[in-house]
Design a binder for these strands. Sequence first.
DNA 1: CGAGATCACGTTACCGCTAACGCAAATCAA
DNA 2: TTGATTTGCGTTAGCGGTAACGTGATCTCG
Lengths: 349, 349
Amino acid sequence: MAVRLKDIARDLGVSLITVSKALRGIDDISEETRQRVLKRAAELDYRPNMLARGLASGKTFIAGLIVPDLLHPFFAEFAKSLNGVLRRSGYGLILASSEEDPEIEQQEIRAVLGRGVDALLIASCQPTLHGFYGVEDQRTPFILIDRDFPQLHAHFVGTDDYAAGLMATRHLLSTGKRRIAHIAGPSFTSGAERRRGYIDALRERSLPVRESAIIDNPRVEETGEEVGYQGMRQLLRRKTRPDAVFCYNDLTAIGAIHATLEAGFSIPDDIAFIGCGNVRYSDYLRVPLSSIDQSTGLLGERAGKLTLDLVKSRATTLKQIRIKPRLVIRASSARPERASARTRASAKP
Amino acid sequence: MAVRLKDIARDLGVSLITVSKALRGIDDISEETRQRVLKRAAELDYRPNMLARGLASGKTFIAGLIVPDLLHPFFAEFAKSLNGVLRRSGYGLILASSEEDPEIEQQEIRAVLGRGVDALLIASCQPTLHGFYGVEDQRTPFILIDRDFPQLHAHFVGTDDYAAGLMATRHLLSTGKRRIAHIAGPSFTSGAERRRGYIDALRERSLPVRESAIIDNPRVEETGEEVGYQGMRQLLRRKTRPDAVFCYNDLTAIGAIHATLEAGFSIPDDIAFIGCGNVRYSDYLRVPLSSIDQSTGLLGERAGKLTLDLVKSRATTLKQIRIKPRLVIRASSARPERASARTRASAKP
DNA sequence: CGAGATCACGTTACCGCTAACGCAAATCAA
DNA sequence: TTGATTTGCGTTAGCGGTAACGTGATCTCG
């Protein structure tokens, strides 16, 4: 059996509670006693039983994170970064993947709450608000990640997707393109906001916003490449071909580029592309892909800090954190000579 | 406050323990009572408090997974797959990333064990066995993932890396290449075994194994591209240039290919490449990358099943699961016309 | 018909830890 | 000196479950 407080107490001839206090650094114990306790605890390699501690104190020092897909680099990087912040404060992370299935997500939310996490972070794939029954009335603080549900009045940490859409489209416009299409994402806020940014960027220039230039896709995350490929084939069949495409994410863009090259067009001269997410390999693709960087690591850090704030104090004010994205220009939207000046940071908010 | 067994018991006028038994399906309760309990539990949306259950029963229904890097597609996919298997059996997964730092790994092992996981899965980055102090003597069953420590006599689930090295090198040989170099991985078993496979494949053909044709790298995981890039530049400076390179993993290969194209060589005619891992984007790279697929999803499933076996019964027999890898040929090692027959599965053991 | 078996449910004692007091001795103020 | 405060440690009572036994009633069967 593992070492318990009781064992240390017996060895030292003090009471169990004294040991507990000494180890937790409660200012109620003489320095000498504390040192004796610490010494003995180290000798015995004492590890507090977090279950017991959690049960007694009502805090588990665990946060829960539910993501739609761990394989998606965005969520993987987010989880990694979040984990780092939490670890440094002694917090653990319990992770669940909903596989983009609202049902599974519900299950996982129940399961994770049952495990008594101190806070819950959810990148939800619920199509409607309805699915949040059971989280709202809970006392466990929760934070929405990446996909917001404005009606929910919940804490939120994510990308400024409207800015991303605006930025991407403005960039394509700045290269002289005018017939800009959009392969859109799912109807979560992330997809909707990027789309809104796209539309507003066109309006700024008084360019027509054609519904036929927007390809809608309910589910993009899992099969982005295929969706991009099929979407692009549709666009190429239109009488007026686009001369640039803003894709919801990088995977979609990769698929779209594939379809474009297959059809014999040149990139970026005939058609330029920009994605979103700035995946690790963007530089090494057949056509290095321009993209909008979401500063995912920073997102994870911010979410971690907010989590710690929430569990420590009852910070009731609603936090809505939206990180400004960054434009990264590569060959898919710029002629080689221009692409040499690779990265251009946007102004900070 | 959340609903407790006590609340249900009070409502129904039975004792707490009756409710507990009814919910756990213990065959000691009349069907009628059980139904009443189930009904009321559903109405109140009862969720068992896993902390209390864990404390009382000694089982937490949580497994711990410690990986060096969540961002690495291999570990992300493994975690995803493992999580799926565990979820279907009501098990949770607590995740920790060691950031490839043995110290952090140690901390995390302690932390995760303190949380009372029923089993621990570790893809370790310990350079020596020494770091496992504290895991071995523990009663918690543990499984090594991907990187084996043969001296430890622990359960292991991973790729057959020797076969991977053999397969990759044989493939390059089969395309007529003879001066085959190797950009090797870290000195864990995964790296060492792939290297051994490489060497044996050359020996089979009685080809010389030159130390100068092997580039060693202590830490490849995080900065694979850079390591591959620098390693390849070294190789290109040698008097006898290689005509093919087997890279420890895909990221390394991507970097190496970059260096090669930059130096003005053509792929695969001047120099062919093969990586290992078969990352998602391999098809869409500047030069589509031949690779060894590790069937990561399958690995996760196997690890999940082994975990469940271990926590359920005291399966004492040592399990060593090594999944046979699969060769995937793309343009980096084959002329376009041959590359059309894209995927070729290896013989099953 | 009575003794053991079976059924359906209850009591008790923890699991390891913490919150919230309790309390004696030492220190301090007046 | 004396009451009030501080210091340092201990007691008690759970947290929400589960394990391991009770226990009283009904059933079974020679």
